[in-house]
């Protein structure tokens, strides 16, 4: 009987998953706003990749926007200044993000709020550096336009693929030995070390992975919007929303950041539409209420209430 229930649940998950993939794949041909769905997929990707370093490993990178911002600029510069095709520029952006993660890697020795503050400072330093690069390279405060490369349908499908790959990576990670090691580090890194887990190496792998995805996402988003500048590429709202969406859904779970990003993105959009001036304040009140009543996020709260769902949702 229990087997049938579990199999039934898995079947439901698969049906929902396939239906969602088919729907998202068909969006550019349907009478719905593909830009709205594009950004929903973007936030699912950002929240899921943020989940790798915070939800799984316990490191809160307040400067997470650095990887996204670098991705936007590397893509734009390699396309507009060096003549690379956009897909190649996006892949190079991913590589640049990983390189940046290695440069920031020594900060992983810090923990808690110290890591968060230093990481935030690194992101701000990068923003200042890019904003002050010669205008002929990085466009200065005006940024760079990519209007000649504008192909929203292509960029939509790139984001679609990135989102699926990201969710797949998070799923594989959650069932892998590396995933167990990361969660051990998150819960108690000294106990993890005492169990023979190479904390430095495992967290570096997570960090590089968590840097790769937003860098590519930044490149795709730059292509989709066709314009970038330092203020939007390094906006703290990128980090904030990644944190809030992932937390709201449930950190350290596979489905949490997806549920959180979908729900909060729709809520955010509704609030923008109804409260164009006070939107941030109203959103803030919602976030405070959600953290108070669902400290483990939606998925975390559900699995705590019904542990048998853990195998399906977490």
């Amino acid at each position: 009987m229990i087997d049938y229930v579990a199999k039934g649940r898995m079947l439901i998950i698969w049906v929902v998953l396939v239906a969602a993939i088919v729907y998202l794949g068909a969006v550019p041909f349907l009478p719905v706003s593909s830009a709205f769905i594009f950004y929903m997929m973007f936030w699912i990707t950002m929240a899921s990749s943020f989940n790798i370093i915070y939800g799984f490993t316990g490191y809160l990178p307040f400067g997470y926007v650095a990887f996204y911002g670098l991705g936007t600029y590397v893509t734009a510069v390699f396309w507009s200044r060096l003549g690379f095709p956009i897909p190649a520029a996006i892949l190079i952006a991913g590589g640049a993000g990983v390189l940046l993660s290695l440069i920031f890697a020594p900060t992983l020795r810090l923990r808690g709020i110290y890591f968060a503050i230093v990481n935030f400072s690194c992101a701000m330093a990068l923003r200042i550096l890019i904003a002050n690069l010669p205008e002929k390279w990085a466009g200065g405060s005006f940024g760079i336009t990519l209007s000649a490369a504008y192909k929203p349908r292509f960029s939509y499908y790139c984001m679609f693929i990135l989102m699926i790959v990201t969710i797949f990576i998070v799923w594989k990670l959650s069932i892998s030995r590396l995933g167990i090691a990361l969660r051990c580090i998150r819960d108690d890194y000294e106990a993890a070390e005492a169990m023979g887990i190479d904390v430095s190496m495992c967290r570096l792998k997570a960090w590089m992975l968590a840097a790769l995805i937003p860098s590519i996402a930044g490149g795709i988003e730059a292509w989709h919007t066709a314009i970038i500048d330092p203020d939007t590429s390094f906006s703290m709202m990128i980090t904030t929303k990644s944190i809030v969406y992932a937390m709201f859904g449930g950190l350290g779970t596979i489905t949490g950041p997806i549920v959180g990003a979908v729900f909060m993105y729709i809520l955010d959009d509704l609030i923008w539409a109804r409260f164009p001036i006070l939107n941030l304040m109203v959103l803030g009140i919602f976030i405070v209420a959600l953290v108070l009543f669902f400290p483990r996020g939606i998925v975390g709260s559900i699995t705590r209430w019904k542990p048998t769902l853990r195998a399906v949702l977490a």
Binding site: R183, C184, D187, A191
Partner: peptide, 14 residues
């Protein structure tokens, strides 16, 4: 010092 947000089986896999 067990891993409190992990299942018992995962604790033993560590």
């Amino acid at each position: 010092r067990i891993f409190k947000r992990m299942t018992i089986i995962e604790n033993l896999m560590a």
